[in-house]
């Protein structure tokens, strides 16, 4: 790509905002997922007895069980949330930037 196009895009406020929002959504969601999972690993490694705590007396509804089930459901929620945010918030910005910089025309104007 021609350096002039790169430089022009880098100064476009919508492009800057698009990158900032994309990073914010992606890293916040991915970071939360990693933090949730790593905390499960740390608990398993250092305080495994915590995962054995029964939330319902006399039954095997344990902290570990709930943690894992919430984790699995959370992975889906995280994926769906990013997809929704990207489509609703980022796609209009992408469309504006593409339009402004001739991204949709084959002559590259």
């Amino acid at each position: 790509m021609h350096p002039a196009i790169v430089a022009k895009l880098a100064q476009d406020p919508d492009f800057i905002r698009l990158r900032r929002l994309q990073r914010r959504y992606a890293f916040t969601i991915a970071g939360s997922v990693v933090a949730f999972y790593v905390s499960l690993g740390v608990t398993m490694a250092y305080w495994p007895e915590v995962l054995d705590i029964r939330l319902v007396p006399g039954r095997w509804i344990t902290v570990g069980l709930i943690w894992n089930v919430l984790g699995l459901l959370g992975w889906f929620a995280a994926t769906a949330t990013y997809a929704a945010l990207s489509t609703r918030r980022l796609t209009p910005l992408r469309a504006r930037v593409r339009e402004r910089h001739g991204w949709n025309s084959s002559d590259g104007a």
Partner: peptide, 10 residues
């Protein structure tokens, strides 16, 4: 950076 964020041209 631009194609990765905006998609390919056309």
């Amino acid at each position: 950076l631009a194609p990765s964020v905006l998609g390919r041209r056309d």
